[in-house]
């Protein structure tokens, strides 16, 4: 309880710092939300409330924006975020097989986070590296020309 409160206080301080750094106008909202997602993994209700005060925006506006953009999240995400390119260029070079291998290995549907909070599986639109499709992005590590049998190996690097 006490530690929760300390955590909350710390989070609020961080959020205030972020807003101070980036700005508190409407145009700053998305960059602020990106920074919060990067820092805490997701945008909590606590964060939305605090931003509502700091940026003089209704909470519904913040939620509405936060849930619109794929790179922002209002749900806690796992330790590692796997993004799989679902665009046609990756699809036609075997992406579908790789993705089902990935889903099997993780036991997750797109958008889900594993029970142990280790993995979040997301699909993404084209990452612009179509020359080496299919492409998997684990956090900031990019894997190209991935085949189904490489999936386990890739995941094992994060044990």
């Amino acid at each position: 309880m006490v530690s929760d409160q300390i955590k909350e206080t710390e989070q609020l301080e961080d959020i205030r710092e972020i807003v101070e750094k980036i700005g508190s106008t409407r145009a700053d909202l998305i960059p602020v939300l990106q920074e919060i997602t990067n820092k805490f993994g997701y945008i909590s209700q606590l964060a939305i409330k605090e931003l509502s005060d700091l940026m003089s925006l209704p909470t519904k506006e913040i939620l509405s924006v936060a849930t619109f953009y794929r790179m922002l999240s209002t749900q806690p995400r796992g330790e590692h975020i796997i993004q799989f390119c679902e665009s046609a260029p990756c699809h036609v070079v075997g992406g579908r097989e790789v993705f089902s291998a990935l889903q099997d290995a993780l036991g997750l549907e797109p958008g889900q986070t594993s029970a142990d909070n280790k993995w979040t599986l997301l699909t993404t639109s084209c990452l612009g590296v179509c020359g080496i499709g299919p492409v998997i992005l684990v956090d900031t590590d990019m894997y190209g020309n991935v085949t189904s049998d490489q999936v386990k190996n890739i995941l094992s690097r994060y044990d």
């Binding site: 209700q45 939305i48 409330k49 209704p58 909470t59 519904k60 506006e61 913040i62 939620l63 509405s64 849930t67 619109f68």
Partner: peptide, 27 residues
């Protein structure tokens, strides 16, 4: 008053109050 908003996008879009809370809590 800015209570109602649109959350998510595409087929998942839905109308929510505030940050997806009870209307009265969303002012």
């Amino acid at each position: 008053r800015f209570v109602w908003g649109v959350s998510e996008r595409g087929f998942d879009s839905r109308i929510v109050a505030g940050m997806d809370e009870d209307m009265l809590d969303a002012r």
